[in-house]
Computed example of a mutant assay.
Amino acid sequence: GMLNAIKNIDFDVWAYTPSEGTLAYRLKLTEYYNKLGYNIKPENILVTVGGSEAITIAMQTCVNEGDEIIIPEPFYANYNGFACMSNVVVKPILSYIENGFALPPIAEFEKLITEKTKAIIICNPNNPTGYLYSREELEALKTLCIKYDLFLFSDEAYREFCYDGREFISPMHLDGLDENVVIMDTVSKRYSACGARLGCLITKNAEVIASGLKFAQARLSPGMVEQIAGAAAVDTPDSYFEKVNTEYTLRRDTLVSRLNNIEGVFCPNPGGAFYVVAKFPIDDADKFCQWILEDFEHNNQTVMMAPATGFYSTAGSGKQEVRMAYVLNTDDLNSAMDCLEIALQQYPGRTI
């Protein structure tokens, strides 16, 4: 649908669009989000150049220089870069592989809160862990944000990727939190359109929209062609997402099962996204991921993985953990696991 919309473009002048995004696209986005129960209007939306810009505008709008945001870790590594661009201080709070990277206890959040704390960021479902936050966890965050008057930033790039019939809950679904919630979203994942660089920021807080619009005006406008394509994408039939969900469930089950059948490996079964973080019997994930690329091969093949250390801010965390994305078909995933199992047996830094 997106590509066909681009092929059928009929405008005569490739002009700037409004800084907040075209009304036509924001109306289609309103249709999409209200189908999900967000109960928003077009004026609650700022169209952004990718989800990344939605995150930076949220930070620059809601958090002053030198103020702090709390993020459960491991977390999407670019949050650090966006915070640095905004002169915002990230305060990480550890979640643990042993309980599948569930939300840390609220008491641990409270230990980090100071007069400089302005926001909490969650990514739901999570990158890199695939963890899907429950309604109970979000209600606990709601209580915390109201108690301390904090913003709750929700990165929802992987919303459509929820498995086993589990319900996706957004902070937008919680009563009494309208002034605190800022949603950051993108077309990159649900439509496999990361090159479109099209996202949005959503909030019912009028002051945040008004202030965020100033940052949007400073960069002029999001692209016209991308918004035409994005509007067409909203009409993607549910059957498409059902097929994707079925395929990705199979991929997840294949990967998690194969990993947990390798001696010394532990991998939680994630509820969403398309990533897993697994713990290996190795001395150092950075060394292992480099070794398997440079010094190992099986049938002239190897496996590329991301050391989980890159997703932690706390020194020393994730040293035995790696992130994998199950964006391959199951045959390729099985071949990769065959390769990985042999590599773990041969790795010089093996710990069992």
Rank of each mutant, 00 (worst) to 15 (best):
Y25R: 00
L27H: 09
L27P: 02
K28Q: 06
L36R: 00
N39F: 14
L46I: 09
T48C: 02
V63R: 00
G66T: 14
I71Y: 03
N87G: 09
N87V: 12
P104E: 05
I106S: 15
I120S: 02
N124A: 04
P125T: 08
S134K: 11
S134H: 09
R135A: 10
L138K: 02
L150D: 01
Y163W: 04
D164L: 08
G165C: 04
F168W: 07
I169H: 15
T186A: 10
K189W: 08
R190M: 09
C194Y: 13
G195F: 14
A196V: 14
I202G: 02
K204F: 05
I209E: 01
F215Q: 00
M224N: 06
G230Y: 01
A231W: 03
A233L: 12
K243H: 13
K243W: 10
V244S: 02
T246R: 10
D253F: 05
T254R: 07
L259N: 04
V265L: 02
V277W: 05
K287N: 13
K287A: 10
C289W: 09
I292S: 09
E294R: 13
E297M: 14
T302S: 10
A308V: 06
A315V: 11
S317M: 15
Q320A: 08
T330F: 12
A336N: 12
M337A: 11
L340I: 12
I342L: 15
A343Q: 06
Q345H: 14
Q345P: 05
